[in-house]
Nucleic acid binder design. Structure first.
Lengths: 102, 102
DNA sequence: ACAACGCATAGATGTATGTCAATATGTTTG
DNA sequence: CAAACATATTGACATACATCTATGCGTTGT
């Protein structure tokens, strides 16, 4: 997993409006128009955020006629959690604990 | 947990160089000069990233004389993991599964 | 086919951010 | 105290990004 991909994934959680969108989707699948009602942004801005959320894998989109339905991707969420865990897990077979001073 | 705070925490994982720094710190505490050697950035740029990492709570700094030692904060990492889990956990006591169409 | 509707894309704009050079701050040592 | 060193801060600058208006594209219904 290269750094660019990791950054892409966690970009989903780096904007206040995107976090609000994710929180709304916890209640189940919602269509774009519904999300738009509850966010104080224009329709193109919402579309922009949904693209970032889908690219990150955290959110999945489903087209149904002219409507776009969005939901949290359990698979994407698990992937993010796994990466976070792997990134922050300190290894115990450590090499040099410190440097410079001692 | 408000959206601004969440965004602040996950900003730690939204830059390639910061992810590289976190990966280095998995091997244990490292001082700034050591990190600087392995990253192709200037010292002020590293300092900038370390501030963001410390503000997010993911990394902890420890000053020892003129050296600054950085390490992954187990507490901060757990907090981030918990927030990620809470954000992406779909609730089962759901209200309206969809809208607009049906 | 045409009008209405939902969403995506393009272009413009202000703000945030990553980066560097220069400088300041704080610490150790002669 | 002065010099050397490690890190932080400041200011400048280019790029990235969030946002808007205007427009395009696919779908639905008349």
């Amino acid at each position: 997993m290269d750094e660019k991909t990791v950054a892409l994934i966690f970009k989903a959680f780096c904007d206040e409006n995107r976090i609000r969108i994710i929180k709304m989707l916890r209640n189940g699948e919602k269509c774009a128009c519904k999300l738009l009602e509850e966010l104080n942004v224009t329709q193109p801005t919402l579309s922009h955020h949904m693209k970032i959320l889908c690219d990150s894998g955290i959110v999945a989109g489903r087209k149904e006629g002219k409507w776009m339905h969005y939901s949290i991707s359990a698979q994407g969420a698990k992937a993010a959690a796994d990466i976070l865990k792997e990134l922050t897990a300190v290894r115990n077979g450590c090499e040099n604990k410190s440097c410079c001073g001692d």
